[in-house]
Amino acid sequence: MAAGTLYTYAENWRAYKAQIAAQYSGVHLKVASTPPAFTFGQTNRLPNFLNSFPLGKVPAFQGDDGFCLFESNAIAHYLSTDALRGSTPQASAHILQWVNFADSEIIPPASAWVFPTLGIMQFNKQATEQAKEEVKRMLLVLNQHLNTRTFLVGERVTLADITVVCSLLWIYKQVLEPAFREPYPNVNRWFGTCINQPQFKAVLGEVKLCEKMAQFDA
Amino acid sequence: MAAGTLYTYAENWRAYKAQIAAQYSGVHLKVASTPPAFTFGQTNRLPNFLNSFPLGKVPAFQGDDGFCLFESNAIAHYLSTDALRGSTPQASAHILQWVNFADSEIIPPASAWVFPTLGIMQFNKQATEQAKEEVKRMLLVLNQHLNTRTFLVGERVTLADITVVCSLLWIYKQVLEPAFREPYPNVNRWFGTCINQPQFKAVLGEVKLCEKMAQFDA
């Protein structure tokens, strides 16, 4: 695949998926996240941006050859190696399974729990408690799966690991305090293994794990 | 890929994606959706089901070789041909883009609008009005994309078409009455083309388009 530009705002966990994939594939990826290259809320509302990316959403990728792509999973997939995508049909299928798991089982409750602690959403006690239960259920499934596995699919990092790690970032940083995450040692081990891979570190930097569960920030 | 069994409840649009893909690939797919093969709410809570499919959700696929897979997009992908998945890296990326578009831009507002009309959820006027606006926005994007295209990606049916069609089924059958869908002629043309493909027809049967927008079913 060709080199290109990834339009995004800074510290966008969705963009991290594509950026980490590019670290593995060696694709030269320019990240346009600050003025003058990209101003979120302005650049992505301009006609020429919307011509290429009709939803105006980021991350959005434009190859140096003009190829345009939106939806973060599609971009990460495009910038990946064959190994990241899965070297057999069954591996590819399992990778897609976990990528979809991240979107459907992790992101909704993780966001519902974390956003009020970041002060970007109203706090609702019932919604937060329900989100916590969903997160516990999800972590239990992951923990059982990772009982005898180093990575989610196969013996090496794949897009499954990249996607699920990026989807768990906010809760590991904001709310999964040590006592809360203690029942999921396999997930903690796997998460630590991944974020310490050089390709993850190059994008995420040092990930500081939650020490005390953040509460609603009014 | 091997033949296998798809566990689901009947008339599950998520399962249709996999079933249509199997029509194209010729994979022999047993659909277990009724007793005694499968009783939704019972079979999927049994320990041996949860061993294979830890979320207990359907559709769930088990190959005759024992290979287990959940998440409908992963199953549809696994049961597809290379042509359905995209014959070039760029085509594959665009297909993934539209598959994710379906999950993020179609399903949330479609569910919010349609569920009350099916008696699945309580009616909320504000949520319904917001959902209608989001559906209009989404249909506009699709309509513009399909202005000069017969299919979403390339010159033939791909997983993109299968996924987006199945995701639009509820709204085309329940709420997109003729006046509401009139501003989106390209989408209507494309939708009609797809549902009349033999492989779609074999799974969906005759799709009766909405004649009058369904209202809240108490």
């Binding site: 909704p108 519902a112 | 009724t34 959820m121």
Partner: peptide
């Protein structure tokens, strides 16, 4: 980054919809 996160489209209600759908189809399937 946090401010822009507020603009993200997240289906917060998804678990609620999944649950409603599950119950509906469980009832429908007896």
């Amino acid at each position: 980054g946090v401010d822009f996160l507020a603009h993200e489209r997240i289906w917060f209600d998804k678990p609620r919809y999944d649950e409603a759908e599950r119950r509906f189809y469980e009832r429908k399937n007896g």
